[in-house]
Amino acid sequence: MAGQAILGENVLKPAMARQAVANTLEALVADYAQMVFRIAYSILRNHHDAEDATQECFLRALKHQDQLPQLRSAKTWIARLAWTAALDKRRSLRPMVSLDDEQSGGLAIHSIADRAAAPEQQVAGREMQQMLERLIAGLPEDLRRPLELSTVQDLNSTEIAEIMEIPEGSVRTRLFRARKQLKDKLAVLLKGKQHD
C-alpha cells in the first residue's frame, strides 16, 4: 500500500500532470494558433516574422505552463503572450520593415476581400491597404497599439484592456481617437487624389 502510494505520488501524478499540460497546450494551439498569428501579423506585417512570433508565443506558454491551471481566461493569457512576443520581435528587427509582403519573399497577403475581387479592384485594394498601413504606422504608439489589436476580429475591447493591462475605458477612448485621426488623414488623402 505504501509502495503504491509512493509510486502514485512520485511517478503517476507528475506524469498525469505533464500529460494534462501537454493536452492543454495542444488544445491551446488548436484553438488559438490563428488568433495568435493574426495578433503577431497586425504588429509585424510580415508572414515570416508573424510565424516566428507565433512559435515564440507558444514556447513562452510552455515555459509558463505552471500558470495554466490558475488562469481565468486562457484566451486573454495567450493573446497577451502573443502581443508581447510580437512587440519583442519588432524591437529586435531593423527599424525599416517592408510593407509589401510579396517583395520581402513571403507569401501574398490573402485578404478575404481580395479573393473574390477583380484584378483592378485587387490592385486598388492593395494600394489602399498599404496606405492604411502607412497611416497606422504614423499614429502615436499609445493609439496605434490598441488599434492594431482591435483589427484582430477575435478580440473585443474588454480583452484588449486585459491584454494591455489598462482600463477598458482607456481602450475605448484611444480607439476613438485613433479612428478619428485615421479618418482625417484618409479624407485629406482622398481629397488630394480627387484633385490629381
Binding site: 498569428f37 495578433i39 501579423y41 497586425s42 508572414h47 508573424a50 510565424e51 507565433t54 483589427t151
Partner: peptide, 8 residues
C-alpha cells in the same frame, strides 16, 4: 481587412 490573413 487589415489582419484578415491566413497563415501558411
Amino acid at each position: 481587412n487589415y489582419t484578415s490573413v491566413v497563415p501558411r
